[in-house]
Write a protein that binds this DNA or RNA. Structure first.
Length: 541
RNA sequence: GCGCCCGUAGCUCAGCUGGAUAGAGCAUCGGACUUCUAAUCCGAGAGUCGUAGGUUCGAAUCCUACCGGGCGUGCCA
């Protein structure tokens, strides 16, 4: 990436200026911040180093900037350097730099965007993890999209990624679920509603009436059946997990009891009111938490301690959990438990996602199992389509509550951003098809005369293509997949604008080859972004 | 009460590891199809960045207080 080369260059300039002009700066203190100026007249890149270091150098920022520029080494990729405003140093890159980018893109092709910032690091990312007691709802869908896309991005950034679904197939909720399906009376806090009745019929059809009398078997089959449906829905959404870890297995393999022993051993537990408590308040939690109830049953938290310990023991360099905002009160205790076990709690990053509100036009769709007014995620996928759902889920920061309007999502118009991006891809394919119909064969970028590309819209498109790696880096570093969605729309805009202003296939054979090269690079980039988002790239629309 | 998230254009939201005149889409208004797909493009209007202080050469961005909305605050998960 050019950014590193520029940073090194500026650092050299700064060092040399410091020495030659005895500024007395302690250079190591400064990192070179580069940003893309919003204003085109401010160049391709700008640094504020002169403003930052002016105080220590005891020089006015503009003067310091001049000193740095005077001492800047030569570079073939820098066309011009300007000092502007309060003391910014603006860099203008040569055309050759941009042409070289295109060469790189075509050569890398499917691997364009592949980074190595995660080299030799493994990440475990856990998401959805819905309780297997009913169908997925729209909130789970959001985490499926975010988690899967983030996994793609981290993978592209060079991490080794494992996608994991944690199955809560043990304990009170599961007992209640089985009890709600069985023959006896449904408990007050049991599961009700049409889907339970329907599910009961399904189970009887498959396993016969007897199963209703065999609680253990019922529990097992009921859970397995739900998991199958969950997995099917996720697959339909293009989300496939590498690992499904069952809470029940943490018990049967004694991992829960081992974790508890270890904590007792460290003297971090105590008995009170018949229950066993963990001293999480010693590790920044607001109070201690129960791990073993007074009735002898472990809490969900107990299993979760063992679960996170196990993931760390497997040797992952980082753990990521994606949780709904309603679980936020749970963060402190999980971090505390990791620390209590002598591990670094910063290995775990919890993404707390805000909730989804479902609308039909102006009207909010109330979700309530009791009233039966329930739109499952599966139904939503059927009604809206997976591409639109995935894209919309990824347009907003996970910090923002997402209003999902079914009517809008279904609309195949310019109000729906997913089609805007897909349309750009389809248009490219259409030109390529047209080219082969005209017997115009693209001979590869090496044979193209790229210096013929100089129109404003052409350069704008190249610039956008070039930003892809940076966007991936930022998304991977900050765990923010939504910036890729924003990027995809900008890239599409740059393409559409190019499309209207520059005809690719013309009588000018040389220009046609150059534009086909650009088109090919736009195609590669667009396809690769859509792949990271998990949205299809149609040949035609 | 305490904790977390949000409050930016009519609407939905970016921007928040401090930078140069606060952005995008939709909506509104005005232009562009004999041309590789008009699901497109080009242009215009539209904002006390919730309020009040503070830090800084510089604040939508950092700090403090307050106001408004959401979610938590279980021996539920």
């Amino acid at each position: 990436m050019i950014i590193e080369q520029l940073q090194a260059l500026i650092k050299d300039g700064l060092k040399k200026a410091n020495k030659e002009e005895t500024l007395g700066l302690s250079i190591s203190k400064y990192s070179i911040d580069l940003e893309r100026p919003k204003e085109k007249t401010h160049g391709d890149w700008a640094t504020n180093i002169a403003l930052v270091a002016s105080k220590e150098a005891k020089k006015a920022p503009r003067q310091l900037a001049e000193a740095i520029v005077r001492n800047l080494p030569e570079s073939q990729y820098i066309k011009n350097v300007e000092i502007a405003g309060p003391g910014f140093i603006n860099f203008f890159l040569t055309n050759e730099w941009f042409y070289q980018v295109l060469n790189k893109v075509e050569e890398a092709d499917k691997d364009y965007g592949q980074l190595s910032i995660g080299k030799d690091q493994s990440v475990n990312i856990e998401f959805v993890s819905a309780n297997p007691v009913g169908p997925l709802h729209i909130g789970h869908g959001r985490w499926a999209a975010v988690g899967d896309s983030l996994a793609n991005i981290l993978n592209k950034a060079g991490y080794e990624v494992t996608k994991e679904f944690y199955v809560n197939d043990f304990g009170r909720q599961i007992d209640l679920f089985a009890a709600s399906l069985g023959v006896g009376e449904v408990p007050d806090d049991g599961y009700k509603g049409d889907y339970i009745e329907e599910y009961k019929r399904k189970i009887v059809d498959k396993h016969g009436e007897e199963i209703l009398y065999d609680t253990e078997k019922l529990k097992k089959e009921a859970v397995n059946g739900q998991l199958e449906e969950i997995e099917t829905t996720l697959k339909k959404f293009r989300v496939v997990f590498d690992v499904w870890t069952r809470e029940s297995e943490l018990y049967s393999s004694n991992k829960v009891s081992q974790a508890i022993f270890e904590l007792e051993d460290k003297g971090l537990t105590y008995q009170k009111e018949g229950a066993t408590w963990l001293k999480t308040s010693q590790f920044d939690d607001e109070k201690d938490r129960v791990i073993m109830r007074s009735n002898g049953e472990p809490t969900y938290f107990a299993a979760d301690i063992a679960y996170h310990k196990d993931k760390i023991d497997q040797g992952f360099s980082r753990l990521i959990d994606i949780w709904g905002a309603d679980h936020h009160g749970y963060i402190a205790r999980v971090r505390a438990s990791i620390e209590a076990l002598g591990q670094d709690p910063n290995k775990l990053k919890i993404i707390l996602g805000q909730l989804v509100r479902l609308y039909r036009g102006q009207e909010i769709v109330k979700m309530s199992k009791r009233t039966g007014e329930m739109v499952t995620f599966d139904e939503l996928l059927e009604e809206v389509g997976k591409d639109a759902v995935r894209y919309i889920f990824l347009t907003k920061s996970t910090d923002t509550t997402l209003d999902f309007d079914i009517e809008l999502a279904k609309e195949q118009s310019n109000k729906n951003p997913v089609y805007y991006v897909q349309y750009a891809h389809a248009r490219i394919c259409s030109i390529l098809k047209h080219a082969s119909g005209q017997a115009v064969s693209y001979k590869g970028i090496k044979k193209a005369n790229l210096s013929l590309l100089k129109a404003e819209t052409e350069f704008n498109l190249i610039r956008h293509i070039e930003q892809f790696e940076e966007v991936i880096q930022e998304a991977a570093t900050n765990l923010t997949p939504h910036i890729l969605t924003t990027y995809s729309a900008k890239l599409a805009t740059a393409f559409h604008s190019f499309y209207t202003h520059c005809k690719v296939i013309t009588d000018d054979k040389e220009l046609t080859q150059a534009r086909l090269a650009l088109l090919n690079c736009a195609h590669i980039t667009l396809r690769n972004v859509l792949e990271l988002l998990g949205v299809s790239a149609p040949q035609k629309m």
